[in-house]
Design a protein around this nucleic acid. Structure first.
Lengths: 193, 193
DNA sequence: AGGGAATGTAGGTACTTACTTACATTATGT
DNA sequence: ACATAATGTAAGTAAGTACCTACATTCCCT
């Protein structure tokens, strides 16, 4: 049985992604969670606070995935490592409704309210990007992969996953995760030429 | 000298990207354009209409780029073709403030208003994606590139460009277009391995 | 069974926003 | 120079939104 808190968090995640920060009204979120609006405000002082809690949780989950894989012996096999990383991220993102790009947009809407939370808000993307960049640097040094720009490679990875995730929110285009990820890793490793 | 119409369109593009659809108030747009709010409503009946005009224009511009390049002799040299395509798109997108991803998000916010305009709204991404997919298919047939999934390759291209564009809206990260695009094409063509 | 915590209901406040109306002002072309 | 079109100003409307208060109801623990 889910607690009220969890129900609200889940509904908020889904609604924020579907409607954007401003578009997701507290009434709608509460309704989606099956609780009254008052309860929402009792549990999470304000709407922006509700968002903050979600983002915090997301950042933690995102780090965990990377750390887990980094510690495994997969680390030394770039192709499998990247495949598993993409897979795990995709799963997390779809299951938990963590929308990587969405976060940036929330940011924009909050900008003028003087929030200094840039760093926090962008943390998922940034975390993955930073971790991956370091990973590529290390692999280049060890001669596992050729001498490409590690930043660019990391950016390709992050952007592809974000985009795939975005697409998954549309009913029309059913995404066959496995195929899309496998093909991607294939091209990322060997190029199209 | 810019016409009032053009001033409003420009301001609207910039504000929509900065604040999102809901976040961009008509007051703010008018202010940014240096005209009164009433003028905005006189020229473009409604806010959603203003958006529609922008998206229409974007879609046309996006097609033009692809068509121009396709007709040139570059078509037969994938690496240069893709480089130029990326470059031109990036220029257009930054100069004209055409945010590829933004468009999808607008869509979400409008969803419940019963807009049936899905297809229109997503047209820039879709246009580029479709055109590129066909391009890759053709190149594979002609033996210019190896046998990869053309859809996946197109998606990598579109998502990378979108993401790069998104990043360019943040003051912090100055994007050196040339380097980012060159490195990208390098990896896309030859892989990281 | 009873008492305290969690939740719901109803109503309301203060604010914002898309959009309108009525009227005044400026610019433009002939 | 004058009619016409384009723009501005002021004021307002109707709807929506985040969030609050007061009180009633339900649930859970002992």
């Amino acid at each position: 049985m889910k607690t009220t808190r969890e129900k609200i968090l889940k509904a908020a995640r889904e609604t924020f992604i579907k409607k954007g920060y401003k578009g997701a009204t507290t009434r709608k979120i509460a309704q989606e969670a099956g609780v009254s609006e008052v309860t929402l405000f009792r549990k999470f002082k304000s709407k922006s606070n509700l968002l903050r809690e979600i983002l915090n949780e997301n950042a933690i989950l995102s780090s965990q995935i990377f750390n887990k894989l980094t510690k495994s012996e997969l680390r030394d096999k770039p192709e499998e490592f990247l495949y598993r990383l993409a897979e795990e991220f995709f799963k997390l993102v779809v299951k938990k409704k963590i929308d990587l790009i969405f976060i940036i947009l929330v940011e924009k809407e909050l900008e003028e309210h003087g929030l200094e939370e840039w760093k926090l808000l962008d943390s998922i993307n940034k975390t993955l990007y930073t971790n991956l960049t370091n990973y590529f640097k290390e692999r280049i040094k060890k001669g596992n992969i050729r001498k490409i720009s590690p930043e660019t490679a990391a950016l390709i990875f992050v952007s592809y996953l974000s985009h795939l995730n975005l697409l998954s929110h549309f009913k029309e285009c059913e995404i066959q995760e496995e195929k899309y990820i496998k093909n991607f890793i294939n091209i990322l490793l060997r190029g199209i030429k």
